[in-house]
């Protein structure tokens, strides 16, 4: 039982939880505002990771410095996808159920294309680079510089996005759209503008998460899928479209995963993840904290 009180475990859980919260945030924004189920979300994390890898390997620039560029890149992918595919879908599709089903299929197609284009361009073999991997010992916790940076930046970005959503007029428009699309239109919110913004913000944050992950983990064209699943678990736990709930659920999942694996064995990790996933959907599909939107 001593293991439960190990500060090392606490640190790992915080880092993983912050990353899950960050990745799920983007997924939640896109679902919340548009009802699009983005099962390609993890692939944007992958693209962010590759961008960081090439930036560092080719120019030696730290991914931490390059974060804004990487975020703009993945946000650009989001804006492009919105303009080419999803604007039409959102305008042309009448029922929400149809839209959700179509978006799932479309994003699946996009996911397959992104993964295989990346594999074609950069081979399917995993890659890694060494950056900020000196080990520091603080209060009995061994931590590498890149994990500390991951935790700090993830928390900063999460806080930044939450403050942005709570306090700017644009952020309030996003929240309004999550709560009620029709009412948002009635009060004169430029829905199309908010939608493209949500795509850019959600995909940009995914890119940042990818860049952070690439500093400490191996990257490959197929790395994104487990993150997509984790992000879905998180936003379902937190309530689809519930931004604050999603952040809490992200941290919670990080803790559950790290502690459960420490108590049992790493072989149960996937069973655990999918077990929670299926369990929550069956027992409480509205999530632990319910939805912020009505109906």
């Amino acid at each position: 039982m001593d293991i439960l009180f190990s500060p090392q475990l606490l640190f790992s859980a915080l880092v993983l939880g912050a990353l899950y919260a960050l990745i799920a945030l983007g997924l939640n924004l896109v679902y919340g505002t548009m009802r699009l189920l983005n099962i390609a979300h993890g692939d944007l994390v992958m693209i962010g990771a590759y961008a960081a890898f090439w930036l560092f390997t080719l120019t030696g620039i730290s991914p931490l410095i390059g974060l804004p560029v990487i975020a703009v890149l993945t946000a650009g992918v989001g804006v492009a996808l919105y303009s080419v595919l999803f604007r039409g879908q959102l305008e042309g599709t009448q029922s929400v159920a149809q839209l959700e089903a179509n978006s799932l299929l479309l994003f699946f197609g996009i996911s397959v294309v992104l993964q295989n284009v990346m594999a074609l361009a950069f081979t399917a073999s995993p890659r890694a680079y060494r950056h900020l991997d000196d080990v520091y010992h603080v209060a009995g916790v061994a931590m590498t510089g890149n994990r500390v940076a991951t935790l700090l930046i993830a928390v900063l970005v999460l806080a930044g996005v939450v403050i942005f959503l709570k306090s700017t007029i644009y952020g309030l428009a996003v929240t309004a759209l999550i709560q009620s699309r029709d009412a948002a239109k009635v009060v004169g919110i430029n829905v199309s503008q908010v939608q493209v913004g949500s795509f850019a913000l959600g995909f940009g944050v995914a890119g940042i998460a990818g860049a952070l992950i690439s500093m400490a983990e191996q990257i490959s064209p197929f790395m994104g899928f487990p993150f997509t699943i984790a992000a879905f678990v998180v936003i379902i736990l937190g309530g689809l479209g519930n931004i604050a709930g999603g952040i809490i659920a992200g941290v919670l999942l990080g803790f559950i995963e790290i502690y459960a694996v420490a108590l049992t064995s790493a072989t149960y990790r996937s069973i655990l993840l999918y077990g929670i996933f299926v369990g929550v959907l069956l027992i409480r599909p509205q999530g632990l904290f319910g939805k912020t939107r009505g109906g």
């Binding site: 595919l85 179509n102 299929l105 479309l106 699946f108 397959v112 294309v113 993964q115 295989n116 074609l120």
Partner: peptide, 20 residues
């Protein structure tokens, strides 16, 4: 095989959008 997967994805997107 990569090209096959890419086309699979593109066809799926294409049919959902243009020929449901």
């Amino acid at each position: 095989p990569r090209l096959y997967m890419i086309l699979l994805g593109l066809f799926l997107v294409g049919f959902v959008v243009f020929a449901p």
